[in-house]
């Protein structure tokens, strides 16, 4: 037990220190790398707290895709503000101490109130486990996400869609930024890794029914495949890809909401699946979500509406 305590203390200490170091780093690149490492440690903490589903998502989305997005943006800005931290105005000492004092009071109150909560606190866990048998899946997190609280998940998919709309509205992709072409090592790597990643995505989707995994984790891994394709220019979106891209972005929302309307038409409640076929319904919805989430994440990484003309031959 003592060793567990040591493990916990070291892990928590590392997490807090990393957060501080990342946000205080003078160099923007250092900040991003430290933030990505923070993602690793946070995922470890969540594994420790028996939250493997969340750790999986954090590994895929939190540190992987967010890190790539931050790196891309940092590179983009590098030309003008060489040191981002240097451009960061130093606050006056009084302001610094004032904010520090306020934050200390707030965190102190948060901690004190937390200690005052009587334990064990009531929770919904027993209700979830009691209804798991009729939910159509064996993984309780998937049951919550796609059956008991499916409406939340529908709205979450809508958030993804809304972001794509906002990003596309900002303008078209610039014709060709001076990004380098990758060499043969990359292509060997891609040939080896990308198919494996697709396989893993499928595995995670299938896994979600009874073990940690599911549409979001699978979608994130598949989205990562898309990001690698884009980065290596194995696939360059053109203006002709806009309509298919729109279709796939909308697939999650339309598929999920359509399923809701279908259940209404069947005479059930909105998103109330027929109990005997709940597993099939959930799996079909999850499959649509996976594809849509993957495309959306890759599209968000691309960061604009594609504008280039289709080229007949690869200019490699």
């Amino acid at each position: 037990m003592l060793l567990w305590l040591v493990f916990d203390l070291v892990l928590i200490g590392a997490i807090v220190w990393l957060a501080w170091a990342a946000l205080a780093a003078r160099d923007g690149f250092e900040m991003i790398v430290l933030f990505m490492v923070l993602g690793l440690f946070v995922a470890l903490a969540w594994v420790r707290l028996q939250a493997p589903d969340v750790a999986l998502a954090e590994a895929a989305v939190g540190s992987g895709i967010t890190g790539a997005l931050l790196l891309k943006t940092w590179r983009h800005r590098r030309g003008r503000a060489a040191g981002d931290a240097a451009a960061d105005a130093r606050p006056s000492r009084a302001l610094g101490f004032g904010v520090m004092g306020l934050v200390t009071v707030l965190t102190g109150m948060l901690a004190a109130v937390l200690v005052l909560i009587p334990r064990p606190a009531p929770s919904l866990a027993e209700t979830v486990f009691a209804n798991l048998a009729v939910s159509g899946v064996d993984n309780p997190v998937t049951a919550v996400l796609l059956n008991f609280r499916a409406y939340d998940t529908l709205l979450e998919v809508v958030v993804l869609f809304a972001v794509v709309v906002v990003v596309w509205l900002l303008g078209d992709a610039e014709a060709d930024r001076r990004a380098p072409r990758l060499g043969s090592i990359f292509f060997g790597f891609a040939r080896l890794v990308l198919p494996v990643m697709v396989l893993i995505a499928g595995y995670l989707l299938w896994l979600g029914g009874f073990a940690p995994g599911g549409a979001f984790q699978a979608g994130a891994v598949l989205g990562a495949v898309g990001i690698v394709l884009l980065l290596g220019r194995l696939y360059t979106p053109t203006a002709a890809d806009r309509l298919p891209a729109r279709l796939v972005f909308g697939l999650g929302t339309v598929g999920f909401a359509g399923a809701g309307l279908a259940t209404l038409a069947l005479g059930n409640a909105f998103l109330g699946y027929p109990p005997e076929a709940a597993k099939t319904w959930i799996l079909v919805i999850e499959a649509m979500l996976t594809v849509s989430i993957a495309a959306t994440l890759a599209g968000l990484f691309f960061g604009a509406a594609p504008s280039g003309r289709p080229t007949r031959e690869s200019d490699r």
Partner: peptide, 13 residues
């Protein structure tokens, strides 16, 4: 009140 998914509160929405 309409119970989404046919699940009553507090489990459903």
């Amino acid at each position: 009140i309409s119970h989404l998914g046919g699940w009553t509160v507090p489990l459903g929405i």
